[in-house]
Write a protein that binds this DNA or RNA. Structure first.
Lengths: 351, 351
DNA sequence: CTGAAAGCGCTTACAG
DNA sequence: CTGAAAGCGCTTACAG
């Protein structure tokens, strides 16, 4: 082989008249290199526009990166969280040989203590990076403080948490999401129809994430001539039966022509509309999971806004990969497209 | 190192009591291995559930895969084709170290001869795989025949070509796309309004791809009570001025409340509506490129259906990567989501 | 039909 | 402060 054909560290070493070990030291900014040598090597690296071969790097290094995944456990009501796992697995099948070791920590989405316990356990296990679904705000903040202490990088999916600075956030821009729904409404109802914006929970919901959707939604109507009422209701119902009571009562006193369900339970409303055979109320929901899709297919839901949870998982994993392994810079916020889903295109968005 | 800790080919070789060269021969199904030896090795591979390390494979092999990209050259009117290139470049930044060498062959989308010339040149250059935008049907068919002779794999983007069997097709399901627009129309107009479905070309368009959209669109209306007329018009106009003549004349004799432009030139209509200040005609277009987006922002276009050209490029490249390098099976058809784009969410879809 | 050896472009002890 | 050498898990001539 001709000397001029050498490439990579070898060529740098040849030009600098040092060994590749020294080049490696400079490359990784390690100590123990004479200032003069270091400068020389650095200038050669610059000159060659040297890019390390990531394959060789990963093959040679036995370092395995441990990534923790802290998300709600799946239950019949919330199979939503299967999707990000699928996304992570998909990414893993692409990047599996690169020395990454994902570990899942599931918590009960109704139980703060379980979030705390699982996040503790995850940190103790010595992870390098984490993917977290920050369902509980205060507990997430506590968690992120600990991450900083331990120099653990974390990416948040689904919800942005104020005052917290993750490696990256991946999810929807809820304000824009609300605006999109606002725009859709323009076509669904007339200018003086009333709208009900609904947040349906099983228990008290402390998250203020949903407010952004409402803000965006209302913002849309500020800029167009709309004279109807927008009624903003948040309810807690243990189950569907109680929801029926609520709706019966609500519709006795109000006359909405459109209902926008800002969390995932649009199917409650759809089920109700079907039960009572109400056909003159349009329905827009969020989140494309099975229950909702069923009613979308039957026509009880007009539109769903998809949260793309699979993509969230995929991108979250990829972000950790980019940061730790490819050593590329990652964007602080990765807002996913706000997909509008109908009876005709839902197949492409199903979780 | 303990023998039991060996992994990969070495461990297979140890268990089979052969050298790794022999293991390699079996792994790649090469000749020159005794049947008995081969069987033994195969059973060990099975038993270990051996998965080759793709990093080591690529690092050791000096084989570089040449991928040709045959797409229209970008001109001011059609900057659309920048997007798939961006997608390919994005994929390249992820997979660049794997030994792939993409080469671009640009042809003039108005000139069949240039397509033929460029495809010839691409084939002669000895590519392993190709990404092709099959603008010209007959010429594409000729090309694919040659590909088969030369054992070149190709993936098609944007248009599905009948009778041709690519490694994979990546693009939109136009029938479904038409149906989605049909659904949107339900909200945009009343049951007895008229609709104009428009195909605007600069010269004679032989592609029958657009028919699928029309079929899907009409199919939607077969299943709901709609009593308006759907007028299906395909026009050839050299420029905007001639289009104005056409529209003036058309609107004198017809009264559409919605115009669905099935190819990329919705901005012609938007520009016209703006020129004549027509505000009672809804407009739905296809393709999110700059001209269209401008009018979407201004409100002259109500919806755009996005073709996701960047994703097409990314996925096309990834498909060749999966096939040639990762040696995974790839799906014959990869339909992309049919994204509905509005003034509020276009930022996520801009080419 | 089979194996020993060099090499891909890096990292990682270890020795000086 | 610096370098020689082994090794990551494969592939690739080459020799027998």
């Amino acid at each position: 082989m001709k000397a001029s054909e050498l490439s990579g560290v070898k060529e740098i070493a040849r030009r600098a008249n040092v060994s590749i070990a020294t080049v490696d030291r400079v490359l990784h900014n390690r100590t123990g290199v004479a200032q003069k040598t270091k400068e020389k090597i650095l200038s050669i690296i610059e000159e060659m526009d040297y890019k390390p071969n990531i394959l060789a790097k990963r093959l040679a290094s036995k370092r395995v990166f441990k990534f923790g995944v802290l998300i709600p456990m799946v239950n019949p009501d919330i199979e939503y969280w299967n999707a990000p796992i699928s996304g992570i697995q998909e990414a893993l099948s692409e990047y599996g040989d690169f020395g990454v070791d994902p570990r899942y920590y599931f918590f009960d989405s109704q139980d703060r203590q379980s979030f705390i316990r699982q996040s503790e356990e995850m940190l103790i296990s010595g992870i390098d990076g984490a993917i977290v679904s920050p369902i509980f705000i205060d507990e997430t903040i506590d968690f992120t403080v600990k991450c900083e202490k331990r120099k653990v990088q974390f990416v948040l999916i689904e919800y942005e948490i104020p005052m917290v600075s993750p490696l990256s956030f991946i999810g929807q821009d809820f304000f824009q999401s609300g605006k999109v729904v606002g725009h859709l409404c323009q076509y669904l109802i007339k200018g003086n129809d009333n709208i009900l914006v609904l947040n349906i929970n099983k228990e008290k919901d402390t998250s203020d994430q949903m407010d952004k959707k409402i803000k965006g939604f209302e913002h849309y109507f500020e800029n167009c001539d709309f004279n109807g009422q927008i009624d903003n209701v948040s309810i807690e119902v243990p189950g569907f039966e109680e929801f029926v009571f609520f709706m019966d009562d609500y519709l006795r006193n109000n006359n909405p022509k459109l209902i926008y369900v800002i969390n995932s339970r649009a199917y409650y409303v759809a089920k109700y509309l079907k039960l009572r055979d109400v056909k003159d109320i349009k329905l827009v929901g969020t989140c494309c999971y099975k229950n909702n899709i069923e009613f979308l297919k039957e026509g009880w839901i007009d539109f769903l806004i998809c949260l793309k949870p699979l993509e969230q998982g995929y991108k979250a994993f990829l972000t950790l990969y980019e940061f730790f392994i490819a050593k590329r810079k990652v964007s602080k916020k990765q807002y996913l497209p706000i997909d509008i889903v109908t009876k005709e295109n839902y197949l492409y968005y199903e979780n």
